[in-house]
Design a protein around this nucleic acid. Structure first.
Lengths: 197, 197
DNA sequence: CCTACCGATCGGTAGG
DNA sequence: CCTACCGATCGGTAGG
């Protein structure tokens, strides 16, 4: 009971921060703007998160937690992992704010001294490893087209997701996020991604 | 003769701005930092470019001019256009600063009110149209694999280039920019990209 | 949690 | 081109 209100307040702040980061990036966001959206002063916000960076860390932490939860990504390497990524894209299309946040931060964090730089290094490595493993399994069962290198396939698959998101945000009407992903997988696999109806 | 020095000075400022934008993005850059790198005061810089936005416009203008020059991209739709893109990637690998600039600005400019937003809208549309046309030609000559949709192929090709660049900047050792592009084209085409030796 | 404040930095202007 | 300045905004702290 006792810390309940504080915990809710913290969650509200994290949510507001995620939205503002998506709109303006991390460096482009101010504690005052985030605080205003949850109805407090920026000094009040600093009572919950001692620094600007601490708030960013909390946002990234919650994103990871949400991802793990949705994925149950324990999914064994193979088609299931790829289906999970497509499902993630479907989820993202319905929640553009997540795409905003992710794309803005990823691009900003290219700078080695950005506080989210290590987070994204880790993120890319993990994503690639997971996808490489899946393509390797598919190769061994003949579900990957002849001559397709699992490592290139994985690297380009991840890059494609990221590039599509930026392009989708810039010219939304011109980009079919999920369709493009399926198209690409179709060009690599010898079997349909989804079980036939 | 007369305006020679001023023109050179302007070029110096634009070059410095491009570097700083690549490091810190547009919003993250200050006129004072750019001015310092060319050895003048920020007020002096504003003598050459009346506002921060005017300097950004000049940077983008010069980029376009350089692109057109290198491309002679009048290259007729078809394999030549795709080869040009691969050549661009080869050029970029040797000039990471260009990739920094482009990736940072593109991501920032996702925001509709960003001063470079329209520039990137135009940029994406043009790139897509050029590549779509080329894939259509290749389809008509049987050089595109059966069942590959030219529009999806073009959209994903552009997205892949952008996504690869961000990932390359974040984890340079793990990403083969040019190889990934060739891999991708290889999975779409029925003919080699380059004429056999 | 708030008010009030700090030092730093920003883009831009005045006036030469 | 420079010095000097302006108003605005920033993250963070003091003190309650």
């Amino acid at each position: 009971m006792t810390y309940q209100k504080g915990r809710i307040r913290r969650e509200d702040i994290i949510s507001a921060a995620a939205v503002v980061y998506g709109e303006a990036g991390y460096h482009g966001s101010s504690l005052r703007e985030i605080a205003k959206r949850v109805g407090m002063s920026h000094a009040g916000l600093l009572y919950y998160f001692p620094t600007k960076e601490a708030l960013l860390a909390a946002v990234l932490e919650r994103r990871d937690a949400e991802d793990s939860e949705r994925e149950q990504l324990a999914a064994a390497p193979g088609l299931g992992v790829l289906r999970n990524f497509v499902a993630l894209a479907e989820h993202n299309v319905r929640h553009p704010g997540i795409v905003d946040l992710y794309s803005r931060l990823a691009a900003e964090a290219v700078a080695p001294d950005h506080p989210a730089h290590e987070y994204f290094e880790r993120h890319y490595r993990q994503a690639r490893e997971s996808v490489i493993g899946s393509f390797r399994v598919l190769a061994s069962t003949g579900e990957l087209r002849e001559g397709v290198d699992p490592e290139f396939a994985a690297l380009t698959f991840i890059a494609l997701m990221d590039g599509l998101q930026v392009q989708w945000l810039t010219t939304p009407g011109d980009v079919d996020l999920v369709g493009s992903l399926r198209f690409y997988l179709g060009s690599l696999l010898t079997v349909p991604l989804d079980p036939e109806a």
